[in-house]
Design a binder for these strands. Sequence first.
DNA 1: CAGCTGACTATTGTTAACCATAGTCAGACC
DNA 2: GGTCTGACTATGGTTAACAATAGTCAGCTG
Lengths: 175, 175
Amino acid sequence: MAELETDPIVRLTGALDPRGGWSASRCTIAKAIDVVGNRSAFLILREAFYGTTRFDDFAARVGVTESVAAARLKALVDEGLLVKRPYREVGERTRYDYHLTEMGADFFPVLTALMQWGERWREPAGVQLRHRDCGAPVHAELRCDQGHPVTVREIDLVPKSAAGTAQAAAADSED
Amino acid sequence: MAELETDPIVRLTGALDPRGGWSASRCTIAKAIDVVGNRSAFLILREAFYGTTRFDDFAARVGVTESVAAARLKALVDEGLLVKRPYREVGERTRYDYHLTEMGADFFPVLTALMQWGERWREPAGVQLRHRDCGAPVHAELRCDQGHPVTVREIDLVPKSAAGTAQAAAADSED
DNA sequence: CAGCTGACTATTGTTAACCATAGTCAGACC
DNA sequence: GGTCTGACTATGGTTAACAATAGTCAGCTG
């Protein structure tokens, strides 16, 4: 019953153990999903990372109606992931295109991780992400701030209020 | 107009450039979203990584009705991310709990990346992921198979059919 | 067999996401 | 002002996701 030693789960620590004493009612993941937790948002962001900027291209390449593209683009602009900028080609009227903001750019690891998961477990993609300088495939992975690669089984879930304590304890052991 | 030099986007290469010559109609991301692209799936998986295994705990901790929990748990079992196992406590009848499979475990980087994005841009979480051995915070990042940290601007999107060619070219330049 | 109780199933209703389609608007040019 | 056309807005309809609630079922024990 409950979690097995071999289960790929994080370890709860401090006030978070036992799990029964709390619940993550409005956690960060839930808040992120409120903004981007729908199909068209994910796919529009994917297209933005591929360099798509124009309204009709977004609608066509994502495969949604113009009304859906309009609503979603507006929402992503309102939320700050995209910014709408005017441009003007000679002989044409002012139009607007959509560019990723820093907030939008920070979403790329999510898309990469999702693509990676889908690559392995759903269906291999027809494309691949590669590091331009060395040509090696790119993937999302977990690392700690010391640079160690980390698996989920090596991870502790720590309450923020106790974070300082754990840091101090680690510093002491280094002394 | 179109993409700026400074835009945080990948570079399209080979048959993928120009972008107008193709579209990612049923890409890997879209296929992944078909399975997990709803709020309750994300949150149930989050709970599974926190060690939740029992039906009533999933429903309560995620904050959905039992019927939603049942439907989503079933779907995640059918898709292979969770497995349903019987257990029996003394004096009680056989019950079942839900455990992550390897396929489910591979979803953790997606959740971590999403949490990271939400942490920075939505609202800081009350908890933190830390590397057990050294105590440092854990994050999702992009790396190439050679171990280089990579930003989105340093990434090429390569067609799979051309991937071997790029590899061979890289090998030649090493000779 | 009856009782218990956790894990669903069933039903009705709401809302968000999305489709198809028609219509309007804005910003240029002539 | 008229025309053009890309970017929406509006409308009616469908579907998936979800809530609230009642009911059924399964696997034990006594």
